[in-house]
Structure formats: structure tokens, C-alpha cells
Design a protein around this nucleic acid. Structure first.
Lengths: 112, 112
DNA sequence: CGAATACTGAGCCATAAGGCTAAGTATCAC
DNA sequence: GTGATACTTAGCCTTATGGCTCAGTATTCG
């Protein structure tokens, strides 16, 4: 339960930055290397890498290094966490009291 | 366009904290006062108020003061921003190239 | 009126976020 | 094997975040 909440912390945090959302948009079209991803941004590489690390930490992307090139891929499954949360939230104000609601309500109780 | 992106920044940032998600879950059941909302949390009121201000700033809730009591209400419309973004993201990796995609892709280009 | 209630404002503190530069390592291309 | 390429590591800086206390204001209750 607490894990679900921490997962949401990370995912929402990752999505809260426009650079990272743009990276996800790019990766939506297919895998790409770090330097390809970084090109559109007026930012030093190490700065850009922090965004990549954060995205990877949140589970929204996966990366793999072959030779000197690190390739990034979007991890679609992780987006389901957001949808689940949204559905649960809607369930609340629609007065539905199904299992999904209870799951999320308890997971969030007292900020845990 | 930039406005849409900034709106997302705020909304996702607001959702990245478990206290704030718990507040939204509570408000999903109906309006509540600040002190009612604050009760479940082991936190000083001014600290809690920061979360409320941030939620209000993000547009996810609205508040109104009557007498000495401030009442908070959830703003369902703002959740649509998240759904729109999610849909656009899915559209990308599903290879759809409709207007929604283009809108979001451009809104996020170069982190703007 | 006086006390309790419900915020509100100011300001401090520690950590995290997001940017930078400078230098290092590991491949790959010639 | 030398040089270019593609990261990577380390460390610094500024601002934002999330918590605190202490004191203040505005209502409401008795």
C-alpha cells in the first residue's frame, strides 16, 4: 500500500517537469539515445542526465547501455499507475464505493 | 500552449505529495473545512495550510471563507488536464497522429 | 466583555530540485 | 594508438519544498 503511494510520488514528481514530459513525448515515438533526446534542449548534458535518471527512477522509462550509447525506452505499464489513481479519484466523487476506491483511500490515509 | 504546460506542471506537482492526494481523496466525498481536513495529519496547521494553498494554486481545489471557517471543494474540471495529457501520450505510442497529439507535442517542445 | 476557535502571517531550518562547469572513462573510427 | 564521441562523476550554486514555532487577526460563544 505504502509502495503504491511512493510509486505515485515518483511518477507525479517525474511528470511535473516540462523537460521530462517532452522526453516522454519523444519516446512515445520509439527508443532513442541520450544525446538524441538531449538535442532539443538548451541544457548541459549532465543536467539533462538528471532528468533521465529521475525518469528511470520513477519507472516511466528504462535504459540500457550498449557500447558507449545508452538507449532509452518508454515503460508504458507505469502510466497505468496514474490512470488507476485517476479512476479511483473519480470513483470517490461519483459515490461509488468499490474495491478500487477502498484500496486507494487506505493507501493514502494519513499520507502513507 | 505554454499555459497548458504550466498548468500540468502545477497539477502534477500538487499530486506528487501523499498528503495532498489524501486531501483530494477526502474532498472527493464532499466539501470540508481546513481543520476537518487537517485532523488526520500529524502536522502543524501552518504546514498543512501550505498544502492547501498549493492545491488551490494548482486549481485542483477551490476554497471559500465564511466567518472564521474556510471550506474547501474539489475542482473536478482540473483533473481533465491529466486525462488529456495521458490520452495524448497514449496516442503517441499507438501511432495515432491526430490533433490531440500535435497539440501536446508542440506544447511540450523544448520544454515550453 | 472575555475566552475559545479557526485560521493566518512571518520567518527559520534542512533537504531536494534543477541548473552549471570541469574533469574522467569507455568506445569507436581512422 | 590517437582522436573524437558519448556519456559519467564530482562538486558547486540558487531556488523551491515541506516541515516547524511563535505571534497575530477575526469570529463566535457564554
Amino acid at each position: 500500500m505504502a509502495q503504491y503511494s511512493e510509486q505515485l510520488n515518483g511518477v507525479f514528481q517525474a511528470l511535473a517537469d516540462p523537460t521530462r514530459r517532452a522526453v516522454l513525448a519523444r519516446l512515445g515515438h520509439g527508443p532513442a539515445s541520450i544525446s538524441d533526446l538531449a538535442k532539443p534542449f538548451d541544457m548541459a548534458l549532465p543536467s539533462f542526465m538528471k532528468h533521465i535518471h529521475l525518469l528511470e527512477g520513477s519507472g516511466l522509462i528504462q535504459t540500457r547501455k550498449q557500447g558507449r550509447v545508452r538507449t532509452c525506452v518508454i515503460e508504458k505499464k507505469q502510466f497505468a499507475a496514474v490512470e488507476t489513481w485517476l479512476s479511483a479519484q473519480r470513483a470517490l466523487w461519483e459515490g461509488r464505493t468499490d474495491r478500487l476506491e477502498q484500496f486507494v483511500t487506505k493507501a493514502q490515509a494519513k499520507g502513507d
